[in-house]
Amino acid sequence: MRYAIVLAACLAAPLQVAAQERVVVAGSALSEITAALGQTHRLVGRDQTSTYPAEIEALPDLGYLRALSAEGLLSLNPDLILADADAGPPETMDLVASTEIPVVRITADFTAEGVIERIAEVGQALSVDPAPLQAEVQASFDALAEARAAHPPLRAMFILTAQGGQITAAGSDTAAEGILHLAGAQNALQGFSGYRQITDEAITNAAPDVLVMMERTGDHSLEDADLQSHAALSLTPAVRDGRVIRMEGSYLLGFGPRTPDAALQLLHAMWE
């Protein structure tokens, strides 16, 4: 019986062109796409940010995306590594590549087209047809576009952290600005890229209609009372009109298959 299975496996092998069965994933969007493609069973490890869906959390955790350990990666005996553009450090990625384990870097582009492209790249790396998932996600993006067309654009500001009252907000080339655009809002902050600490005067100048934040526990989050008592924020139309939205971080900023839903939820919250 066992021989029959082995024989069958040998015969089947050439058909499935060298499908890798021990995949390590580094990047939350990539693990979500892998799961949405129904390939969770092939994963053997993940980075710290990959926590959705919940079954992935049981996998060995390789630590922070940008500080992966070479021996840690190799210890999982992977035959394929799916890595986000941010995964590193470069020394680790070079060492791993020198063992001839394929490392596939997936591009990061914070647009609807970027998400569809990522799904294609992950599907190709895993030798799975990405078309059904792409079509499904594209349909959600189309529905989102319709919802977006029904409203005039708002000016929104994304607050990453607020330690000690010092606001760190999102500029251009960020996942946060990407999701604001998808939800039909403009970034009220212009003129810098990445996440930066900004001054109180810049906040009053920006005068956002909406504030968007990640919902989390600990000292990073700003409660409504904190917003009211923050000199600069309390002057913004957003706080005055109570348009403050908090959403779960990896859902909001992941740029994976759940992104159209996240953007739609954000859009509805803005126009509630």
């Binding site: 940008r66 500080a67 450090p89 990453l160 930066r196 600490q197």
Partner: peptide, 24 residues
């Protein structure tokens, strides 16, 4: 540090705590 963006800040934290991980 105040000029650094978010990704650079994460690099600074890891560098500041010291590590032999980059040994080659």
């Amino acid at each position: 540090v105040t000029l650094a963006d978010d990704a650079q800040l994460r690099d600074l934290t890891f560098w500041g705590l010291g590590s032999l991980a980059g040994a080659s």
